[in-house]
């Protein structure tokens, strides 16, 4: 398994060219950039809501752990995997946190 690109030293920044809609509790998104539709599901939608402003992975995870019954380590692992997918599809980009 390859090392994740996203780490605690990154800020997660939403791409601007996405149209998002709530459908039955799930988040569906159209990327204007590539013309594709995505379903982020319920938790993915929650993550999307939490990155409205640029934030670190740790901030996203802290918020989710306070709301969902999940261990911090497991949550971070799965959130990073999900964010990597968003990054691959060009739905988000990452910036280095200033030291």
């Amino acid at each position: 398994m390859s090392e994740p690109t996203i780490s605690s030293k990154h800020l997660i920044v939403r791409g601007k060219e996405n149209i998002v809609s709530d459908m039955g509790g799930e988040k569906v998104m159209l990327s204007v950039r590539n013309g594709r539709y995505y379903n982020l599901g319920e938790i993915g939608g929650k993550i999307w809501d939490n990155i409205e402003a640029p934030v670190s992975v740790d901030q996203v995870v802290d918020k989710l752990v306070s709301e969902y019954d999940v261990a911090q380590i497991k949550c971070k692992e799965e959130v990073v995997s999900f964010l990597e997918l968003l990054l691959e599809e060009g739905l988000i980009h990452i910036e280095e946190v200033n030291p």
Binding site: R36, G41, I43, D69, E78
Partner: peptide, 15 residues
């Protein structure tokens, strides 16, 4: 009461 966690997934819709 905390909500049930499910692994987040990204589904690329077939259109």
């Amino acid at each position: 009461m905390k909500k049930v966690w499910q692994k987040p997934t990204l589904e690329v819709l077939n259109i």
